[in-house]
Design a binder for these strands. Sequence first.
DNA 1: GATGATTACGGACGCCGTAAGCATA
DNA 2: TATGCTTACGGCGTCCGTAATCATC
Lengths: 292, 292
Amino acid sequence: MSMELRDLRSFVTVVRTGSFTAAADELGYTQSAVSQQVAALEAELGRRLLERRPVRTTAAGAHLAEHAARILLRVDVAKSEVGQLAEDSAELVLVTGPLGAGSVLALGLRRFRTALPSAQLTVRVGGRSGAIAELASGEADVALIDGIGAPSTALTTFDAGLFVSSLVSESALAVILPADHPLARRRTIDLDVMVDAPWVEAPELLARPQPLGATPGGPPPLRYEGHDVAGLLGLVAAGHGAALLPARVGAGVDGVTAVPLGRPQLIHRIELLRRRRTSRHQRLLVDAITGR
Amino acid sequence: MSMELRDLRSFVTVVRTGSFTAAADELGYTQSAVSQQVAALEAELGRRLLERRPVRTTAAGAHLAEHAARILLRVDVAKSEVGQLAEDSAELVLVTGPLGAGSVLALGLRRFRTALPSAQLTVRVGGRSGAIAELASGEADVALIDGIGAPSTALTTFDAGLFVSSLVSESALAVILPADHPLARRRTIDLDVMVDAPWVEAPELLARPQPLGATPGGPPPLRYEGHDVAGLLGLVAAGHGAALLPARVGAGVDGVTAVPLGRPQLIHRIELLRRRRTSRHQRLLVDAITGR
DNA sequence: GATGATTACGGACGCCGTAAGCATA
DNA sequence: TATGCTTACGGCGTCCGTAATCATC
């Protein structure tokens, strides 16, 4: 009758997938089992956590989901940390989002491979949330995560002591427009002039910064769920809306123009995340990528 | 066969109490059950977590205990937060350590009682770790915690988003000596001149700062487990060793002298801790104590 | 009406208690 | 030798799956 991790795991999976059935499939349960687990949570807390059909969190459920996600993340870290204690494997895995895999990484990797040619390194490119989960569970040794933020401000504050992050790079952002867009000739563009303009969202590529909140009233932005920059740039060129990306990835591409962002002063930031307890090989990799 | 909170709770209790039997009593299990729970953890992780007779953590166990304690703390916070959502009780509980209950608190409480005479306020004085647990579980609304640290540096970094802390006061520290001690006439005392001198530890009263590490070789310091300042001062007056306390509590007491601390520059800091989600009454109490 | 969550019910497994075993102070 | 952790074993409770029910798109 007490709250257990099993129930929390099912609950957050339901919240994430938006479906009892999908959560059950993912976790290897039946729909019925997940339903009972969520019901048990609701019974214990004395509050409804989810609205059904469609499945959405209540206020209480949203708070619980937030806590539960952090709890489960730490459980994964604890497991992998205890499991890998005193190991120092030379097989390293680095996970990164699509935008982390650029020149910065290449330089760091060259340094690492020169310093430790015997180590076997795998670079895996995936989504952002998956990268953090892999880092937590020990499937990956380090993760490059990126996002938009104010200069010199860390991207995310994780639970104290869960991960250590180091700055890899901060680079300028640009508003990506069709080449024939009326604003394409500007030297810089402030976000507020774009407030009513259509955007193309690409959450798998780069999380939308807070200032670009959902535009109430206007048409919902187009969602692009691909992991590649080229596809997004194609949509921009075709006139489906503007995009906000690091200036370098939009420069010199046919059909689009990258206009440097004016105000607010936001930058694209790449951070290297690692677990608190690290092996010698892991530290060497981190040092190589961050440049000592 | 999967890791569950029940096992983690038993494990951390064993670690804290140093005994399977004590943990079982505290949790309402039999010794046998706790033994099986810990064994299950060890089996799943594939590592020995505890040495027995005497009970001590292995390296892996120490790491797990650290993670587990944070996990369980967040579980308590999640429960109480979800349970108290949208409630705005006028019955407030403030927990504080012995050193937080002084003049600073009195002033803030007067402000609060003037502003909200109808609210029922309880001030509970207890130990430091207990205060945090009560805050997490919702038994307390706010907690005053104190400790020794560098000026303008927060005392403890909790998991992101678990608690919010506000500075209540920073005050000078003094080395408390018997009145007839050779150093009692000094204007200030640096800690390094005391390195070989005997100390009286009072962990329930004030955690020992890092610079006062265990003096290897020398006699172990006397441990005073009382919660009152007077008892500690009595021991100091009787010549059992020196103590480090806020200057004001040692001033003007018979038999002892409070000599201001020179180097390193450390201060006594009091912070007000509250959960992330707070009710209106809770916020009013926080505002009153911190002085808006 | 189909998809999908809930409820009913039965079986199997897991968890904990009792009791015996064993190691260490 | 006594205290305290571990292991053996059995019963009870819990948890999940099957299947029927209910609700919503």
